[in-house]
């Protein structure tokens, strides 16, 4: 809209951004106080100088590095797996004609409504049977492919790759796989990057399944945070320093790839 925004618009936006940042600041604020000050409820407005000390204590009371490594591993592997399998399938649904395409796609879309909780009991039994319970692999397994991923890639590729292009390549005697690799894959890259980011974040923040699947000495970062918070004797400065610390990796990702994330959300929206 070609309107010049006024002071009011900036003011409202700034207020909202402030509200978005405030809880994070609060977390850092309490995390930087001594135990005593943090326990009294309302701390001073400026951070104290104890963040590093508190963070150190938090790392000592949970297997922080191991949890971080697990979270990184699980999120990266699943994100790559989702991108790979879903780009393949999404391309087929978008551009290739084959019998059963319509019904299969409807099936995929319908299963997007299936809550993950529904699968938890059998997945748990399955993991126990296979002896995988407690391993990081058991946390990855439910996320290796997602219906959303296929749907997302399909929506993107429908428009991103013109049919004429594929037709032309095929006229030239190109096999399917070559068309896929040389035409579809390059075109899919922006969407693949976004899907990768999304999956990474989704798996990183997941809590229910890792809580059940993993033992306390081999947690993901979310499960470790839960351990930090639960206790008979609670130290707010430590808990919030740990929480801040655990948020930093995604904040870094956000700073590096926030622009892509924004455009990804907006692109996905128009297609969806």
């Amino acid at each position: 809209m070609s309107r010049r925004p006024g002071f009011l618009v900036y003011g409202l936006l700034a207020a909202f951004v402030l509200g978005s940042a405030a809880p994070l600041y609060w977390s850092f604020l309490l995390g930087s106080q001594t135990k005593e000050v943090a326990a009294q409820g309302v701390p001073p407005l400026l951070p104290g100088g104890h963040f590093m000390a508190n963070a150190q204590r938090a790392m000592d009371s949970i297997p922080f590095w191991k949890a971080l490594g697990n979270s990184l591993l699980v999120s990266t592997v699943t994100a790559c797996s989702v991108v790979f399998f879903c780009t393949l399938a999404g391309y087929a649904f978008a551009k290739l004609r084959f019998r059963g395409r319509g019904p299969l796609l409807v099936f995929v879309v319908a299963t997007m409504a299936v809550p993950t909780q529904l699968g938890v009991v059998p997945l748990f039994i399955l993991m126990a049977e296979l002896g995988w319970a407690g391993t990081t692999f058991s946390v990855m397994l439910p996320w290796l492919v997602t219906a959303f991923g296929v749907f997302f890639m399909r929506q993107y590729l429908v428009d991103a790759v013109p049919d004429e292009l594929i037709e032309a390549a095929r006229m030239d005697g190109c096999s399917q796989i070559r068309v896929f690799l040389t035409v579809a894959v390059p075109a899919a890259r922006p969407a693949a990057a976004i899907l990768w980011l999304f999956t990474f974040m989704q798996v990183w923040t997941d809590f229910f399944w890792p809580l059940i699947a993993l033992p306390p000495d081999n947690p993901t970062i979310q499960v470790a945070l839960n351990q930090l918070q639960s206790g008979y004797f609670k130290d707010f400065s430590l808990v919030l320093a740990g929480t801040t610390l655990a948020t930093i990796p995604l904040l870094i990702l956000f700073v590096l790839a926030g622009r892509q994330l924004v455009s990804g959300i907006m692109q996905g929206a128009v297609k969806g």
Binding site: F124, A128, A133, G134, P215, D217
Partner: peptide, 10 residues
């Protein structure tokens, strides 16, 4: 949970 899984206990 880990008793049921048959592994994962300390």
């Amino acid at each position: 949970t880990k008793l049921a899984a048959g592994s994962g206990l300390s």
